[in-house]
Design a protein around this nucleic acid. Structure first.
Length: 225
DNA sequence: GCGACAG
DNA sequence: ATCTTGTCGC
């Protein structure tokens, strides 16, 4: 289950960093993926706090086609603290993925993997809890460093932390900012980049786009009453 | 001590 | 995270 305080989460992250699960690779045929997302009330800025109202979503896809959606309101378990995102969102997101009609082959998460103070970001943690290979996607690195790749779709460049390649900048579209792709649970950098390239039609990979849209629709519906 | 810091 | 503004391209 999910740690409920920072000390317990840090302990769990240190444990996760020592695990070496078997690497996963996509099989032949249509890829069954999922994306999960959480959004908060509009107009509220800052790190927030425990109890913040949130809307979560998980969407299951066969290749690029959404086939199931789950949305639910929930409460953040903590304010946002860099390195402790799992404390805030872990239970909500894992619960929603667990409601999908089947387990995906790979789950895309809005968070880092090995680019983390203890090499165990939310993408790693969710994958371990759910026993699902994961790939993280963020707008920017948490700690890793590296220059942008050329402005060509498919171009990548490494992001390093303490001399290790822990993530990659990826141009999913020319003319826009690259995304950061993070290997998570049972994925390596090459596999993570390949999965994102396969699932990205627009800038944001379709599983995350679909989940973000579903979460925001749930928020909008709630605001109307 | 100070700043930086996924969402 | 979320918002606002401006700019570019179709």
């Amino acid at each position: 289950m999910w740690p409920t305080d920072a000390d317990a989460l840090v302990d769990r992250q240190r444990e996760l960093a020592t695990l070496t699960p078997a690497p996963w690779r996509p099989g032949v045929g249509a890829l069954v993926s999922a994306g999960c997302w959480a959004c908060f009330r509009r107009g509220v800025s800052g790190p927030g706090r425990a109890g913040d109202l949130a809307w979560g979503a998980a969407v299951l896809l066969e290749e690029l086609r959404p086939v199931a959606r789950r949305v639910a309101p929930g409460a953040a378990r903590a304010g946002y603290v860099p390195g402790l995102l799992a404390l805030r969102l872990g239970p909500l997101l894992s619960g929603l993925v667990g409601l999908l009609p089947r387990r995906p082959e790979v789950l895309l998460v809005d968070g880092t993997g090995r680019d983390h103070p203890r090499r165990a970001g939310l993408a790693v943690h969710l994958g371990a809890e759910l026993d699902v290979p994961t790939v993280g996607v963020t707008h920017r690195p948490l700690l890793a460093e590296g220059g942008w790749p050329p402005d060509v779709r498919g171009a990548t460049s490494p992001l390093l932390l303490d001399g290790d390649v822990v993530a990659a900048w990826v141009r999913t579209r020319a003319g826009t900012r690259p995304l950061v792709v993070h290997p998570g649970w049972r994925t390596d950098p090459d596999t993570a980049v390949a999965v994102v390239g396969r699932l990205a039609v627009r800038r944001t990979p379709e599983p995350l786009r679909a989940a973000r849209q579903a979460a925001r629709e749930a928020r909008a519906a709630a605001s109307l009453g």
